[in-house]
């Protein structure tokens, strides 16, 4: 019941918050990023997508205010107050105050070679159990990245939670499909299922080696697949070997 009240009050508050938008737009003029059209014309769409109709055309030499960008489109307004969207490529048809074409952000693979973060989500199979992993990594040099990963694998007998840190080496970082090898270590927490009568939770250390492929798709989006071979240092006499396949994607930023 409390939730309903919170939600409804939020809904009542938000529209009021939305109203001053037009005023804010007018005020932001001072800090606005402005260009002028250099090609015969630029078409303005009603929404940020290829299918939205063109409702206005801005001709050569007319100024255009760039409000903000979203998912490959830029919201623009004209001096007469028309507001619409142009694709980011439309920047190439404009000139800024220094009579140059605005510098486009490089979204190719080469823009993310070093000094960038990488967030990943991977699904896989660890010892015949489905696993799900989240990772955050930092690419220190073209070849070397360090990463911390949390994996959760819940099978019919136990929930396994693994935390590891690893170092990845990309042999050919400039290839679109780039192979890498990795070494890492971490700690596993094994919790037997509530419905299974087994001893209490166990904590075990492990080390692993692995290899994989990263395929750069576009706009900092990477498809990633890897194989890992684990050695679990169990409290029993024998170490245990586990294998894991993972497939997922990364976002570079």
């Amino acid at each position: 019941m409390r939730l309903v009240v919170i939600l409804l009050s939020l809904m009542a508050v938000l529209p009021a918050w939305a109203e001053p938008e037009t005023e804010a737009d007018a005020k932001s003029d001072t800090a606005a990023v402005r260009v002028k059209v250099a090609e015969p014309f630029v078409e303005i769409h009603t929404g940020p997508g290829r299918g939205y109709p063109v409702f206005h055309v801005v001709e050569r030499d007319a100024p255009l205010t760039l409000e903000y960008r979203r998912a490959g489109w830029i919201k623009v307004s004209t001096v007469r107050g028309r507001v619409g969207w142009v694709p980011r490529e439309a920047l190439l048809a404009t000139l800024d105050g220094s009579e140059q074409t605005p510098e486009m952000k490089n979204l190719g693979q080469e823009a993310f070679q070093a000094g960038h973060w990488q967030a990943s989500v991977l699904m896989g199979e660890l010892d015949e159990v489905t696993s799900l992993a989240f990772a955050l990594g930092y690419r220190m040099t073209e070849n070397l990245s360090a990463e911390a990963m949390f994996t959760q694998a819940s099978g019919p007998f136990a929930n396994n939670k693994l935390i590891d840190i690893n170092v990845q080496h990309e042999m050919f970082p400039r290839w679109r499909v780039s192979p890498y090898v990795m070494l890492g270590t971490g700690r596993a927490k094994i919790e037997p299922r509530a419905t299974v009568v087994t001893p209490e939770n166990r904590d075990e250390n492990f080390a692993f080696a692995g290899a994989g492929l990263k395929a750069y798709l576009s706009r900092g989006f990477v498809l990633r697949g890897e194989y890992r071979s684990y050695v679990l240092f169990t409290q029993e006499d024998d170490n245990r070997n586990l294998e894991e396949w993972k497939l997922g994607f990364s976002v570079l930023f």
């Binding site: 003029d29 606005a32 990023v33 402005r34 260009v35 002028k36 059209v37 801005v58 001709e59 050569r60 030499d61 007319a62 100024p63 760039l66 409000e67 903000y68 960008r69 979203r70 998912a71 830029i74 004209t78 001096v79 007469r80 028309r82 980011r88 920047l91 800024d96 105050g97 220094s98 140059q100 605005p102 510098e103 486009m104 952000k105």
Partner: peptide, 29 residues
Amino acid sequence: TVRDADAESVLDPRIERRHIKEADIDAEN
């Protein structure tokens, strides 16, 4: 029939004389 490129707006002093990068535009993704 509004024209955005009339003489007045072409000389609009509000176009700053600076080089613009795409990253200068606020991103709302």
